[in-house]
Design a protein around this nucleic acid. Structure first.
Lengths: 214, 214, 214, 214
DNA sequence: AGCTAATCGAGACGGTACGTCACGTCTTAAT
DNA sequence: ATTAAGACGTGACGTACCGTCTCGATTAGCT
């Protein structure tokens, strides 16, 4: 099931000691860090498709063999680089209003995804279209946890009675974030704070003309 | 603006009379048709990235040079192939209820986009992430007109008083189709008729617990 | 035996009337002349390998089909162009001394072969190495007659008692012109009037130290 | 000056010790040898023009990229193949008579140049006509040394008083070998032992009717 | 004067080889 | 054992020129 040849980035965090160290030279942390940093740096200038494994290795001052020893391919290096550059867990807004929380969160997400840094998101989704395993990995390692974090907004909203309890949260969340992803990937419309607000507002109020307001 | 070296597919359809034919041998319809057919066929088996220009040419019984003479790259060939295979303009449902129309339409779109044929959509969006010009072209030649067609549902709904008149239709449409695209590209949740219905319903009613129903 | 599809250039000169003209549009002299002129012109700037059939046709304002209708390939066009630009039969020197005649002739030949015009000679020999039929044709249409002309110098020399009668003229002629061709094609040594004189002198006197002059 | 991207063939032979080996994987001797062997083999069947880089690579079981990494084009591969297949330095005859030595040498050279193996010589001269740098390289790497070797015959002849000391050896050598090259490349006359003998004899005695023999 | 052939310009076409690029693997000597 | 360096096989790329072909327009001799 594991695609990555190892737990990659995470491998270095775990195993604080315990097991017997293998003989010979130990895996270099510096080396791995250099690769991830180089990848991040290069991806700010070019898209994933145009960043070559050679370029990463060269920029990191690392041999290509080292790179391929720890990652099965370039995409997974980029994914790790992306993940490692996002460590400081983003905290979810908590203003007391789910509407406001979602608006703030969406604005924040948009700002990130449209930044050079966050534009990697689009590349990953794109790569995923021709590499299902990579798409799965991307979902499991990044999206899932992000969505889980955001779901707390939803749940708080439900608890507070702001959000309909009968609505499948998955559908609710897609309703809020789907349109943003759509615009992000297809580029058919603007994507900024104003739109974030309008989108969340529309998702909340709904499209339908309510009988009362008629 | 034009990326394609010519009007390609469309060039052959238009102007049945009018302008004087150029002097030399005419562009072969058979040749172009063969290329588009071969491309469509190959794309049913493999994803766009894995279909090579050579394979298209060979399967079409056409020389690679001919292919590159009329299209700058295989993505645009695929786009033309996609467009040509969708000629019969899909008609938009018109049941008298916007909610039902959107549900039917979304179901239909989902069925298409998850078919071998329609999965090209995902590939195009993916390619577009590393080729902005292609993304623009894809939007202009395909998405734009599709969205325009669907917008009639919206406008009928507004006229009938089913849909809020104060809501930007662009936002409304993204609300309905964005979540589907999100799921289509990221694959984090199911995508079938039931979900189509739930999505449209949620978009219509909104996420918010209405005071009256409280 | 004929390689060319027709008698080419010569076809237009011959048959002043006689046979019944075929029906339809007649072959255009202007057209052929333009092709030959364009070829000659282009070959002054580039070597035969680098002059394309398209370039010839375009420069001549002629269609490629016309070109290939009358010549089987580019090399034979060039050969005809070469021959047609040399019509005015070069006259062989006749000073009364074979030594002097050969020297003058060799100087003249060297001047021609090292001119832009005459450098086609080298190209023909080169092409001939990978196309034996072309080499044969080149020999038959050009070299043979040139050598025959020059042979009169030899024969006059023999008659006058200047040249050994027991020597095969073919060997004698090769002795005089071979070294020049060698230098022309390989470029390992200078090729000018001085060398022409020295070469002919050496060929005449021989390499051997004569007993008498010892 | 250097055309080849490296010292190629020679690089592997030289410097058995001295400089420290570079760090990485070493250039594969087997790989290079396979390329040269394949080239030699193919050139026995087809002429240089008709031997493709792909064919060489495939037959050598080597990738085209590797081939192009070490040689800028197939001509230089062929040249290296030619040179490597001639290593055992041919020894120059030394019978005590320059006339006989030159005759033997010329016979030997003719036999070689008319063999499948040696016919590459013609191809090289031919290619050189459209690629001056290649011609220079061919002269420098092959012809020069061959001529230098043969010149010892000349010098011994001069010392022994068989050959005129006042004659420029370059002219003398061209006189002996030029006619052979002429015939080799143009094919207007036979090229065998008998002619070798006749040619050398004529070059030695000269064309001129000597007064004494009159 | 119209008919019928052949030629002509334009340029599309199939084919073949080119030389380049990136991928991911493998080899070597050094650490 | 891991590293840097970098050679290697694979396979697709997009380009160039070849020689053939298909058009419609032109230009004659023949009816």
């Amino acid at each position: 099931m594991a695609i990555a040849k190892n737990a990659s980035r995470l491998a270095l965090e775990s195993q604080p000691s315990a097991e017997t160290k293998p003989r010979g030279r130990q895996r270099s942390h510096a080396c791995e860090a250099a690769i991830l940093a180089a990848t991040t740096e290069l991806l700010k200038k070019k898209c994933l498709r145009d960043v070559t494994a050679d370029a990463i290795a060269q920029r990191a001052g690392v041999s290509k063999a080292t790179l391929y020893k720890w990652w099965p391919n370039k995409n997974l290096v980029a994914l790790d680089a992306f993940l490692s550059s996002m460590r400081l867990s983003v905290d979810i807004p908590n203003t007391g209003s789910a509407l406001e929380d979602f608006t703030l969160e969406l604005e924040s997400v948009i700002r990130f995804y449209t930044s050079p840094q966050g534009s990697m998101f689009r590349q990953f989704v794109a790569e995923g279209q021709s590499d299902p395993e990579f798409l799965t990995l991307f979902r499991d390692r990044f999206l899932r946890s992000r969505l889980d974090e955001v779901r707390t907004i939803w749940e708080r909203g439900v608890k507070r009675g702001e959000i309909r309890a009968d609505l499948d949260p998955e559908i609710g969340m897609d309703l809020i974030f789907g349109p943003m992803i759509f615009r992000l990937l297809v580029g058919h419309a603007e994507l900024d704070d104003a739109h974030a607000e309008a989108l969340v507002a529309a998702a909340f109020r709904g499209v339908q003309k309510t009988p009362s307001s008629a």
